[in-house]
Amino acid sequence: MQRWISTGVVLLLFVLVFGLLIPAIHQAREAARKSTSKNNLKQIGLAVGNYADAHRCLPSGGVIREDGTAMQGWMTMYLPFMDASADFNRVNMQAAWNSLVNRNVTETVRPYYLNPSVRANSTSTGYGVTHYLSNPHLYYRNSSVTFEQMENGTAHTWVTGEVAGEFQPWAYPFNWRPLGTQLCNGPGSFGYPAWQGGHLLFADGSVSFFSEKTSAVILEKFAAAPPVPTREQIAVPEKRFETGIFYWKQMPLQTEPDRDHTYFAKVLENSDQRPVLIQLFRSNHKELSEEEQQQMHLEDQRTFSVPRLILQISKTTDLQQALKDSPLSEDTNAAQMQVILNRLESLQKQLP
């Protein structure tokens, strides 16, 4: 009997210790994620300074053409300063941010634009998102703000910070949001509710944490700091993106071995591993001679080896006709085409 009592006491102590350790482990992990988010903002701060050194101003919040076409946003312009020069060089600056030719870059999930405590990493249409939005006084339509215009000084002019929700693609050319008068005040505010506050990056490169109880007077001063653009300059489309946990999976497709092209499908899956989007890509693997390279236009040379989206498949796509009309029909035999059709139809039936 005494032995069973001793065993029970040991087990009880084990449960108590385990119960005390779990919250401590959770707090340690959350502190690490909080530190990572702060460091992400510091990296963006370095990009801010380096870009300004190179161009004598901050990048445009969003390059918007006269016809209203949204081209590229400020986060895209910082890619060369975030160790992503290769991706930046793949961006077609003459095409819209969400054009087919730019999707390979804009779909990429970039950890340095994410708060690791937030699970949403992508939109339901496959674009990588950001959990940081910028100061609309510094980044707005076709802006080119300089440090000299920050009359309150760089140490008192906020640049970007963590947002509580309503996340947007990092390449979206309208990634700015008014600071508001309270942090963690709903999904349209700044801050991370679980931390009861949030980090703000300032133009001098410093990052500070502000509690959700920070005085509205302080936030109003930050929000009102010059330069002050017009209402038209900071206007954004009334658009909301569905975001969540989504992952791309790549599926090779068998074609004729002597062809110059290879094909593959990219499938965007949700957290339940169900497909929500299917795309068909073509890559050119032919080796170009020097003479052929010289004959190609510069833009074609730059994107020649980059996979090109040739078909986006939805629930209502007539898959058999779409494949027949695509370049894939020229690079496959009848048996290969039937196998590909069957695989894609199986995935298509699972689309929402």
Rank of each mutant, 00 (worst) to 15 (best):
L133T: 02
S122R: 14
G45R: 05
G126L: 07
T69L: 08
S134K: 00
A28P: 03
I64W: 03
M93Q: 15
N98D: 11
R29I: 10
N102V: 08
A54N: 10
A70V: 07
S124R: 03
P111L: 03
G61N: 02
V105T: 10
R90C: 14
A54V: 04
P59N: 01
D53Y: 13
N39K: 11
M93I: 13
T125M: 04
Y132M: 04
M71C: 06
Y113F: 15
D87K: 10
T130W: 04
W97A: 02
A32D: 10
Y132C: 01
S35I: 05
M75L: 14
N115G: 00
I44C: 05
S37P: 05
Q43C: 08
Q94H: 14
R29W: 09
L114F: 01
R65W: 01
H55I: 05
V129G: 03
L100C: 06
N92T: 12
N98W: 05
E30S: 07
K42N: 11
G73I: 12
G61Q: 03
P80N: 11
Q94D: 15
S60M: 01
Y127G: 02
K42V: 14
W97D: 05
D87M: 13
Q72G: 04
N135Q: 04
E107V: 09
S85Y: 15
A54G: 05
N40T: 00
P116M: 03
S35Y: 12
S134T: 09
M75I: 08
Y51D: 10
N115P: 00
S60W: 00
M93E: 15
V91E: 02
D83E: 15
Y112K: 08
A70H: 00
G61S: 02
L133G: 02
T36M: 12
F88W: 15
A120R: 01
I44A: 07
A95N: 08
T123K: 02
T36W: 12
G68S: 02
D87F: 15
Q94A: 15
E30F: 09
G45A: 09
R119L: 11
V105P: 13
S37K: 01
N135A: 05
Q43I: 02
Y112E: 09
A28M: 12
A95Y: 12
T130A: 02
N89W: 15
D53T: 12
W74F: 13
G128C: 01
D67Y: 07
H131P: 04
A54R: 08
G68W: 01
M77I: 05
N50A: 08
T36G: 06
V63S: 08
L58F: 13
D87E: 15
N98L: 01
A47N: 06
N50R: 11
D53K: 14
V48S: 04
S134F: 04
R33W: 14
N98H: 12
H55L: 06
F88L: 07
P80Q: 12
S37N: 06
R90P: 09
Q94N: 14
R119V: 10
L46D: 12
A96M: 08
A52H: 14
C57T: 10
S117R: 02
S124T: 07
T36K: 11
V48D: 10
A96L: 05
T106R: 00
T36V: 09
S60A: 08
M71Q: 09
S117I: 03
Y127M: 06
N92E: 14
N102Q: 05
R29F: 11
Y132I: 07
N50H: 11
R90V: 14
N89M: 14
S122L: 08
H55P: 03
V101G: 06
Y132A: 02
R103Q: 13
S35K: 12
G61L: 01
E107W: 14
D67A: 03
